[in-house]
Write a protein that binds this DNA or RNA. Structure first.
Lengths: 330, 330
DNA sequence: TTGTAAGCGTTATCAA
DNA sequence: TTGATAACGCTTACAA
């Protein structure tokens, strides 16, 4: 392995100068700098990042901890994080917790040992663990808020509201909610918005609680029966995967979407538009959230930059929603 | 920050002993070990990984370079890599090249500086670059073979053969192939298998080349028209995304799948089963490939363990394939 | 502008 | 079984 000493020796300068030529180009005489750079290239020198990290005290890496890299939205967050990190010259250490709330803290703590800070996506861990983790090093939350920790979240209340207004406008008076996991912070947030909107902003809208479900396609399949039995003419789902499952089951029972029941999802995953019918859903800016999280973590702004981003969501109306019983269409 | 020295001092031992107690427990007196472990816990000691890496010469990290983390199959590979790496005590540094062949080498080289070795998924870079990278450190290829580099690939010829036999058996005599990118190694491999099988193993089967396409849904949409115009009664697609796009476009033109045209995909992404109709496709074991790649990289076997894995694929017959003109059904 | 030298926090060698 | 002590490769005062 060729070290900085080797380069320095070959270029006839001290290691210090060689180091400067490489990392602080303008504090070195032009001729020296070029000589060093050239010999470095000739020798195929590659800086030892461990040594650099030890000397400078920073690793040039950030951590990304997420429940499941195979989920489209986490993949999108990862995409955003990766892109922004590269722009800022950082590397990304990734860790998949396999949806395991217990493992999550351990894994994140281990990651924290190697990086400048950690981005936690939809963390399920307790608030206490979150704070313990924050004590180990910088932490940014995505899709969750907790205490004063920096976070990137989404204005899902606005999305829920928009969806409800859409459905109400279409003539629906009874809307089912297929909820997410009990442990999901965003599920709780959605529920309270649902109640608030139904109670205050929209007349005569009834919300039917269709329970908690794992956020996967098959849960939707199961929830569809409850939805059909509930008498609701529209269903709002915790996420697109569930919504797609609901549609699938409804259709296989001969219930038409949207003619008989309207379905609204959440997330706008890539396949939402490919479904039959294309899914009406609340689009969430996952990749931008990933970018924002990196900015928060690396404090790209001025010292007192904002510690929270709340990103706007966007209701995308496609074909899984149609007129309800009180509507005039059809 | 609490260092090993602090722990050692507090426990009344030398740093050397403290280090041993933590990393080499059975070479230290039981009483000492426990004392050290306890004080380490009390002080909240966390080993500095950069220092450890510098001293031992290994970082405990592996690199994972892939074209697009949002693609379901790369996400699955990542899942497998992550899981296996954790089992083996390694961390995973991830880098998304954004499908950019030019960037790919640069990114991989940068990653290589920080890790024990790099796993390259479906690399598009030249053979020369591949070798240059291998000179920088251990490399394992996934879904590509090149020279003597360790690799994990798939027996796609068998999959292509199976698909063709299925279609032929169903009565199809003219099968279109919607190809992948010109730069994709696996596309070339598929084409040659197609020709070989059509020429030698199956009677009277005509392969229609439907061109090269980017491996995305919208390419399928575009390719569908070519497929319909070609007179082929069945279409084999480079991957599921494309196949789904083909189906979508066919359907929107009033061409029924599989009644009018059968469609076969490749990969078996999660949504293949959710499509309407569910997609017949060649299932590829992405996650196991990720695990295998880690094993290859970390040389988990004996010194002369195999350097290549070729994983079996599996034709999954669903509802996007049906009887062709020479069949007796319908 | 350049060089000397002192760390950075661990591990590992060699004696004791 | 333990303790000095020397690396590991780089950065960064501090001097020159």
């Amino acid at each position: 392995m060729v070290t900085l000493r080797d380069v320095a020796r070959a270029a006839g300068v001290s290691p210090a100068t060689a180091s400067r030529a490489l990392g602080n180009p303008d504090v070195v005489a032009v001729s020296t700098r070029e000589r060093v750079l050239r010999t470095a290239r000739e020798l195929g020198y590659r800086a030892n990042q461990a040594a650099r990290a030890l000397a400078t005290g920073n690793s040039g890496m950030i951590g990304l901890v997420l429940p499941d890299i195979e989920s489209p939205f986490f993949a999108s967050i990862a995409k955003g994080v990766d892109a922004r990190a590269r722009e800022l010259g950082s590397a990304v250490l990734i860790a998949d917790t396999e949806e395991d709330a217990a493992l999550e803290f351990e894994i994140a703590a281990r990651v924290q040992e190697r990086v400048e800070g950690v981005i936690l996506c939809s963390p399920r861990m307790s608030r206490a663990h979150l704070e313990e983790l924050a004590a180990l090093g910088p932490v940014v939350l995505v899709n969750r808020e907790a205490g004063g920790l920096p976070s990137v979240s989404f204005d899902t209340p606005a999305g829920v509201r928009e969806a409800l207004v859409l459905l109400h406008g279409l003539g629906h008076r009874s809307v089912g909610y297929v909820g997410g996991p009990r442990s999901a912070w965003s599920d709780a947030e959605r529920r309270s918005t649902l109640d608030a909107v139904a109670g205050l902003e929209v007349d005569g809208l009834d919300i039917v609680d269709l329970g908690h479900h794992r956020p996967v396609f098959s849960s939707g399949v199961a929830a569809a029966d409850a939805a059909a039995a509930s008498g609701a003419t529209a269903v709002l789902c915790y996420n697109d995967l569930v919504a797609l499952g609901v549609i699938r089951r409804l259709q296989s029972r001969g219930i038409r979407v949207p003619e008989d029941i309207s379905v609204v999802g959440f997330d706008d995953i890539p396949f939402a538009t490919l479904a039959a019918p294309p899914l009406t859903t609340v689009a969430v800016p996952w990749a931008p959230a990933g970018r924002a999280a990196v900015d928060l973590l690396l404090g790209t702004g001025r010292p007192q930059a904002p510690q929270h981003f709340r990103l706007a969501v966007d209701l995308v109306v496609r074909d899984s929603t149609g007129a309800g019983p009180a509507g005039n269409a059809e």
